[in-house]
Structure formats: C-alpha cells, structure tokens
Design a protein around this nucleic acid. Sequence first.
RNA 1: GGGGAGAUGCCCGAGUGGUUAAAGGGGACGGACUGUAAAUCCGUUGACUAUGUCUACAGUGGUUCGAAUCCACUUCUCCCCA
Length: 431
Amino acid sequence: MINGVVMQTLLDIFRDRGLVEMVSDEVLGAELSKGCVPFYTGYDPTASSLQIGNLFAIVTMRRLQEAGHKPVVIVGGATGMIGDPSGKNAERNFLTQETIEQNVAGIRAQLETYLDFSSSSSGAVLLNNYDWLGAFNFIEFLRDVGKRFRMGEMLAKESVKRRISSEAGLSFTEFTYQMLQAYDFLHLYKTHGVRLQIGGGDQWGNITAGIDLVRKVEGAQVFGLVIPLVVDGQGKKFGKSEGGTIYLDPNVTSPYQMYQYLLNSDDASVITYLKYYTFLSMDDIRQLEETISENAGARQAQKTLAEEVVRFTHGEDGLQAALRATRVFFGEAIENLNDADLRGIFADVPSVEVSREQLAAGIGAIDLLAMTTLFSSKSEARRSIQQNGAYLNNLPLKEIDRVITIADLASETTLVLRKGKKNYSLVRITG
RNA sequence: GGGGAGAUGCCCGAGUGGUUAAAGGGGACGGACUGUAAAUCCGUUGACUAUGUCUACAGUGGUUCGAAUCCACUUCUCCCCA
C-alpha cells in the first residue's frame, strides 16, 4: 500500500485473468514488482513443432517478458531422452540424438516468433539442458546432486506414486527425472539468476523439487507458478480436434485449420481462452462476453479469438490466408484465383490428375466426380447431382449430362469439386 | 460324443415359393433449418452403357415356370446334454 492505494502486482493481474493455478509462495508478487525476475519453462523435444496446447505457456512468458522479466526457455535435449513420467501412463520410447536435435531446432525457430530474443536485459534465451546435464558423469551426479534428494519426498510425488502402483510400473530412469529437472532449476539459478519456473499443473512435483534443491544448495528462495490446464466444454484437452492436434507450424497445421479450430470454440469456454491466449484488455474481453448473451449467433468472441491467435502465430498474411480460405470453404464462388491461391486454400484436400487432352475433349460430370475420392461409384455421383449436392468451383452442378472442359478450370490447372457443404477434391491437369 | 438353433445389405433385424434390390431401426451421405453447434424435418443409401440391364440374402449343387424362402452336402457361429 502506498498512500492508501492498493498496488496491484503483476501476480494480481495474472490472477484476475485466471492465469494462476498455483504459486509456491505469495512473496512472488512482491518480487515481480521489484525488478527483473529471470524465469524459465521447459519443453520436451518430442516433436519438431509445438502445438496450440503449448501456446498458453508461451503467451504467459510473453506477458512476463513485456513486464520486464527475462524468459529462459529450456528445450529438454537431455531430459527428453529420459522421459517425464508426470501425467503419463507408460514410459515412452527414447528419442535418438538426431531426432532431438532436429526438434530442438524447430522449436527454437517457433519461439522466436513469439518472444523477443534480443540482447536487451529482458531478452529471451533458449538453452538445451543437454549442454550441462550431458556433461555429468554418473558418480559426480550422485555425489553432487543425488545426495540432496530424500527418498521419502521423491516417492511421495503424485506422478511417481501413480506409476509405481500401475500396471506399467516405473523404471529407475524415469524415476530420476525429477532430479534432472530440479538440477536444471539450480543450474539456471546459478548461471542466469533464474528465480521462477512456470509450467502446467502436471509439472508441480518437478517444480517443487527444483525449489527445494535451490534452497538446500544455495540457501535461496526461488518460485514456481502453475498455469491452469486448458480444457474445452466437454472437459477434453484444448488443442486436439478430430483431425488431430493443432500445431503451430503452418506446414503441419494450416492457418486455416487453426482459425477453424478456434472459431469453433464453445460459448462456455471462449471467454476463458481470450483471457489465456490474447493480449486484449479485460475490458475488451468483458465487452465480448456481453456479445455472447446479446447475439450468440454472431460469434464475435470466437472470431476475435481466432483472429488474434492466428495473427499472433502466423502474422497478418497468415490470418488473411485463413480468412480467404474460410470464405472459399464455406461456399464463396471460386473465381479470379490462381494456382498458388488454390494450393494454399486447399492444401489438405486430396486431388486427382487428368491429362490436358482428356479435359480438352470433355469429361462427363459423373465420370469426373467418380474419379475423385468424394464418390466411390458413378451411381453415387449421379445421385449427388440429382440431390443438388455436387458442386463445380462452388457452383451447383445441375445437369447430370453436363460435360466439363478446359473452360471450367478455376485457375491455370485446377478444377475444384465439392460434395455437400465442405468436402472438397481437386482435379489437376497435367501435360 | 449326443441333441438343438442359426448364418440376410455398413451394423442390428424382419421376411419361410411369385411387384423382394429385399420391411423396420441404427449409421452414413445429401438437402432444409441453424451460429460452420445441438435438435428437428425431408430425401438417398448394390452396380452399370439407367424408366432398362446385371449382380445380390454363408458356399456349392439340386427341385421349380419361378427360391432369401424347399432339398442335399460343405463351411462357420451359438446353445443344451455328456
């Protein structure tokens, strides 16, 4: 309190936004107000791309960075080889050194779009814990680190208890995981002054292990902050759609797919997502919340969420591509588009090839439709046309005996066929 | 080893000699409605050279003008008694 005014700390602001599941000590609020607190979070390099589920932590890091705190991102080159038992039912397969290196490179590139990696005092750094953990020999590790750990505490960890009593059991390798991660915290404290670890709820055991180790070895207080688990209206983990996981890499998950996933957020969850994933003010978010009760059908909140996140991830160009793909996918006539546009929009759509001579000679609509994966027989194709369910370049195919020719190309080499609302197939001409 | 029941379209399930490409339900697909939701409603759901033709009711053979329906054998499934 200063002059009778309650100062709101960054931690309070985070709380208002719902970003805090747990903190190790309330003193963290004051610490964050005093000055730069280097903090870290870690990622396992199990894939070359992060997924949208990881984005929450990244956005949270960004918030901290904007408040003047320095992000230290660890990619678990060493711990990734061990496998974190937290929240997992079985030990995972070891990754090869080569795969891990590839994945580390991919993750680094992605983080650079979200965080400021400049050399300023709060500039982010990315480290690979293989660089220090890999150098250890076993005896040294036992003497310097292992001695600080008590079996009772280690066995009491939820992740360990659950796995030990499970069918799969727990290997010694996995059991030591918490020591490695705790050592990361100690190492970062010593080398970068890191005093805060953030992570998801399943990391709580590992985080506290690190806090304890730093206290024992250095006599210093460091902190942990756990962000909430993000789930959708059905309680399912955020970021998994029927089509699979939503990745941040546009080559794996197109901006359009990400946009669609976010746009389809249910009304009950969208406000929470806006708080987690966007930098909109709480006032703006409250206004969007009102639009839901006023006119839920407009889905203003969902649109805003999708726009903000896609722009943040893929830039303005990526967002525009997603919006254009959305318009086309949802029925806008396909015209004035070139091959490159279509390739972007229909990146995930199957295609068949037809020679230029064949198309020049004309192909019956039914025959052409039956060649695609859309229909498994000519009868189906015929039926679909009769039911007004077949479209050429998003215009209904009305006549059964329609002949399709070169003149029908939507772009230089492509015809767009559609069944029903949004099942597409492309026909490309060759030669 | 003895006795009994059964095998139908994507699935379940009617049908026991003649408009049966096969009732009904589910699913799926299309359409309407809608918020790219849910529900609801309508239509479709063997193939093809398409108002017709061909292929289909476990398999093979037979009876018959005509069979998913009757007979024989084969294969498989289930149940009961030893």
